[in-house]
Write a protein that binds this DNA or RNA. Structure first.
Lengths: 306, 306
DNA sequence: ACCTACTGATACCTGCCGGGTATCACAGCC
DNA sequence: GGCTGTGATACCCGGCAGGTATCAGTAGGT
């Protein structure tokens, strides 16, 4: 019943992701036989079958799926331990704040300004990342704190503080008929035949079925909109998407999006606590649009550049 | 930069807790020299000094304190991975529900009754534990779901759903003057000279200073109250404490206590989700105290399956 | 049916590293 | 100064991780 080693977990994750011992071994930089042995020993020690080795390839069992999820979390925790310890030893470590590239730009700007003007605040390093990447950065210790968006991002396992609430806009190619409307509903933008919703890859890299184009970066998507191939519904403050060729139209019945500041619950760092306090103070004293209370709806119709 | 092994983390935690290489080695069942080497290698790999080896013993550095906290979390995550995987392989595994012994007894009773009468529900095993133990049981995979109490328990890192809100009562020895009152305030019960508040051990086993008796189990404390040596302020539904020699008097200005059902955010198990749904349904249909203030927030955000 | 290609499992060897014993170096303390 | 107790160092040994070579089963092409 002695507990698992991280090496075994890494090996299992590699095999479970590749579903192929040979490729997994290459990825791990070892030969295939030791990998087979390690997985076999893991199954023996856990007393559970993790993989179905059928004809031509490998499939995960139910227990294997559980271990894949748990092992990823455990490996993240181990990596976070190493990273946070290294950074704790660095006397003038900056705090790392992760934010989705292009999202909540004004909020981030004001937050950084406020921190810069505060005398005792620790320096902050900003890490701009792709959609959904913040959670992993927080979990494995590469970031100390992150700006995330409810209900889009998975906030499970983090402590959070709401910062602001805003509506959503549809981003359309400028020439499209819908672009001339001054407001839309979800029904209007759902199933527009010539503007199918784009598809993002799943964790395993595969794409869901559907008519829309396949994308994996924000720039791709923004360009596809400009080309008149798809449309988006995003929070009003997202800036990276909005090209001159785009038109933003408020979607009145889309669910509101809350920008939150999130941090790992294990964090007892005073620097993180003080950053969160600064962010909350910012929210309470300087609402982004005048006359708004804490939950200001910033539905400012985005000015079309020129 | 290759990542840490769980063995190294276990070794470090042992040393950090014992603050003594020899004793830590005994606890780990190895000799002292390999332990020194392992810690030394860990420090070299992390590039950080973890321990101050001064004259006569060892002290943690700041980085060491960070690693101690992170390593415990990581080891829990690894242990949870093993436990949950084993249980996933067991076809007729019961769900494990952890609850503080003696707390929320009626709620627990009704929950179990409701589950027993539900046709498709998985069997539930109840794990009664000491104060504050639920969080660790959830974190390291020994429990799937737990009843916890805000603001007493640390809910950081778990998903929760509120179940009920209740006031608090003071538990007094029957003969005491205060016991004849029909209600009290916090000012009444604070600093009663002959009934000082009891002291619980900290994580490291030491006790805070103060006049009250030292306790580490609920039964001890209940008996001390019966003996007229201390008093308690606890949620009204806590039953384990209430002996015939006790009198419970409502404390009108004590903060309300919310009983919540909590589960690890990684849990995508449909069995856990259905149990939480049952608990929420129970709350919404059969309030524990008629006309009592209760929260009817149904925020079913349970992730469904993998 | 054959052969072939490709899969993961097995056999066996080797070198490294984790763990053991013996000892050292250093500090406090009678 | 010796004594005691600490962690570090030196050195040896055995087990296990990792390598190569090979086997074994299955799908597919002919």
């Amino acid at each position: 019943m002695e507990d698992l080693e991280t090496r075994e977990l890494r090996y299992f994750v590699a095999v479970a992701e590749e579903l192929h011992f040979g490729r997994a071994a290459v990825r791990l930089g070892i030969a295939q036989p030791p990998l087979s042995r390690a997985i076999g020993r893991l199954e023996r020690r856990l007393g559970v079958r993790l993989l179905d080795r059928n004809r031509r390839g490998v499939a995960l069992t139910d227990a294997g799926r559980v271990l894949l999820r748990e092992a990823r979390a455990a490996l993240d925790a181990v990596a976070a331990a190493a990273r946070r310890t290294r950074r704790a030893g660095d006397p003038k470590r900056p705090l790392v704040l992760a934010s989705k590239a292009g999202a909540s730009h004004e909020l981030l700007q004001r937050l950084l300004d406020a921190l810069a003007s505060e005398p005792g605040a620790a320096p902050v390093e900003v890490l701009l990342c792709e959609v959904g990447e913040q959670a992993r950065l927080l979990r494995d210790g590469r970031a100390d704190v992150a700006l995330m968006h409810r209900p889009f991002d998975d906030l499970a396992g983090f402590d959070t503080e709401d910062l602001c609430v805003e509506g959503q806009v549809a981003i359309l190619p400028a020439g499209h008929p819908l672009a001339s409307r001054d407001q839309l509903t979800l029904a209007d933008v759902r199933d527009v035949p010539d503007l199918p919703i784009a598809r993002w890859p799943r964790l395993d890299g595969s794409y869901p079925d559907g008519p829309g184009p396949e994308v994996h970066t924000q720039s791709q998507l923004a360009q596809l909109v400009a080309l008149g191939r798809t449309l988006l519904v995003i929070p009003a403050s997202s800036r990276a998407w909005q090209w001159p060729e785009h038109v933003a139209v408020p979607v009145v019945d889309a669910p509101n999006v809350t920008t939150v500041i999130a941090w790992p619950p294990s964090s007892h760092s005073p620097a993180v606590a003080s950053l969160v306090r600064s962010a909350a103070r910012l929210r309470d004293t300087a609402p982004p649009s005048p006359a708004g209370p804490r939950t200001t709806r910033l539905r400012t119709a985005i000015a079309q550049k020129d």
